[in-house]
Design a protein around this nucleic acid. Structure first.
Length: 483
RNA sequence: GGCGCCAUCGUCUAGUGGUUAGGACAUCACGCUUUCAAUGUGGUAACCGGAGUUCAAUUCUCCGUGGCGCUACCA
């Protein structure tokens, strides 16, 4: 049974890199009929953020990367929140101490800091000097009885090489003397990542650990821990990191990193997932668009790349536009709620025709207020250079006077009859082509681009159009008389 | 500094001991469209450097360079 897990710390919003890690775990598990587990690694009390767990779960659900087990998802191997498993860790640390693979350390943080500073000053490798390894049993008992603050460290080998096998990177050797006597239990009684992670992955029967590359250097320590416990270690696969456009590690400051940010801007989960899947993985074919089902079917760790990938928002935007174009009118309307500006006086079905009219040019829902303004606005603004280029001309007065009078006699107002009216204007005024059409577009919408005129006038009422044209005519007259 | 990972168009990537080095985004041109977009067609654009192995290296090996990660009682 393949079992994978996503094990975030609840320190804030879910990061897009985190979502990619979760996704790869999910896809790998699902493609092998396995299970995907969510575990919350909240062993650092100082970094805990209230509400982060709920937000994490909510975001995973939104993205459709839904755990089979985890807090709120059930499962037989819980609890799935590490702060609720302290007793389990305590017992395991005790067994390690008894077997001689771990030891109490009473060194103060002051001493540790001083030690590190000195080592750096002497250009030596900063690491613990193993001082408490050799404490006598009676000494330890006495200091424990005195309630002296202490941690528990693991005993690492002094020499030799520890080689780990990574599914993506192959065999990676690490010289043992590089390994620090890592702290396993902190003085507050909480385990560190290294201990809790190994214990939980074993107890939760995780078969494959798929995580970020930042964990590669500590994997030999984890491997050692499995050996000390007498357990088989899971398989490892370390994913490359997501990068900023300047190739530094993806971070706030250079753009949005929280999944939440993209959701708020109106990116669809399908697009974000499709995009993230292709950042470091490819199917070996030319296919670019994948549904979650297709991803599950196609995904394999063998085709995951080794180098870091820049998070290219432009491609995500293209992909999002692609998914938006496939939306049915009803779905489009449903998803646009929360992004629409005030549209009092507009029914849902009228709103749907507005949305359909601008659908093909939409790349994300946050553009909605801008792109729908020409329909919903109460008052058009002609006082911008692009518009004045057309309306502040004597020609505009001629065109609009003619069109306004046409409006009074037009029958069955709609896109077609309005276009017919424009043709009449063309005949009577002799003005044609871009000057004619753009002037009318400017008058009608206050913008120089948008959907086709007949599409717009199919939606806008005759009254609205007549009113806007009259307003534009007045404006054109004022502008030209002034000059 | 030490240890480790990585290296093909601007970006995501495919690929090979002999290829016109392929696709997608972006970009440019043209078509369609009396606007924009969408769409169609075409174009520009890459094997980090140096040795070695080989008849032949972008591909294999080593070195260098660069980028990144780790080097906490954070994960």
């Amino acid at each position: 049974m393949i079992r994978t897990r996503f094990a975030p710390s609840p320190t804030g919003f879910l990061h897009v890199g985190g979502l990619r890690t979760a996704l790869y775990n999910y896809l790998f598990a699902k493609s092998h009929n396995g299970r995907f587990i969510l575990r919350i690694e909240d062993t650092d009390q100082s970094r805990k953020v209230p509400g982060a767990v709920e937000n994490l779960i909510e975001t995973l659900k939104w993205a459709n990367v839904t755990p089979d087990e985890g807090p709120e998802f059930g499962g037989d191997l819980g609890p799935y929140i590490q702060s609720q498993r302290l007793e389990i860790y305590r017992q395991h640390i005790q067994s390690l101490i008894e077997k001689g693979h771990a030891y109490y350390c009473f060194c103060s943080t002051d001493r540790l800091d001083a030690l590190r500073k000195q080592q750096i000053a002497e250009h030596r490798q900063p690491r613990y000097d193993n001082r408490c390894r050799t404490l006598s049993d009676s000494d330890i008992r006495k200091r424990l009885a005195n309630n002296e603050p202490h941690v528990v460290r693991m005993k690492t080998p002094e020499t030799g090489t520890i080689e780990i096998h990574d599914l993506i990177r192959g065999n990676v050797p690490f010289p043992a003397e590089q390994l620090d006597d890592q702290v396993l239990m902190k003085s507050d009684g909480y385990p560190t990542y290294h201990l809790a992670n190994v214990v939980d992955d074993h107890l939760m029967q995780i078969s494959h650990v798929i995580r970020g590359e930042e964990w590669l250097p500590s994997t030999p320590k984890h491997q050692l821990l499995y050996k000390y416990f007498g357990w088989d270690s899971p398989q490892f696969a370390h994913l490359s990191l997501l990068l900023n456009p300047d190739k530094s590690k993806l971070s706030k400051r250079q753009g949005d990193v929280a999944v939440e940010d993209y959701r708020k801007k109106g990116y669809l989960p399908e697009a974000l997932i499709n995009f993230l899947a292709l950042l470091g993985w490819n199917p070996g074919t030319d296919q670019e668009i994948f549904s979650m089902e297709e991803l599950i079917h196609e995904f394999s760790l063998e085709r995951v790349g080794r180098s870091g990938a820049i998070f290219n928002v432009e491609k995500l935007a293209w992909m999002n536009g692609h998914y938006i174009r496939t939306l049915s009118p009803e779905k489009l309307f449903q998803l646009s709620s929360g992004f629409l500006p005030d549209r009092s006086g507009w029914s849902d079905s009228q709103t749907i025709s507005v949305l359909t009219a601008i659908q093909e040019g939409l790349t994300k829902f946050s553009e909605l207020p801008d792109k729908t303004r020409l329909f919903f606005t109460e008052k058009l603004n002609y006082d911008i250079p692009d518009i004045q280029e057309y309306l502040a001309k004597p020609e505009a007065v001629t065109i609009l006077e003619s069109l306004v009078s046409q409006m009074e006699i037009v029958q069955d107002f709609n896109g077609d009859s309005f276009v017919a009216a424009i043709k009449t204007v063309q005949k009577t005024t002799g003005i044609k082509g871009k000057p004619l059409w753009m002037t009318i577009r400017a008058a009608l919408t206050g913008e120089t681009h948008g959907p086709e005129i007949h599409v717009i006038t199919n939606i806008l009422s005759q009254e609205t159009c007549a009113c806007r044209l009259q307003l534009a005519l007045d404006y054109a007259r004022r502008q030209t008389s002034r000059n």
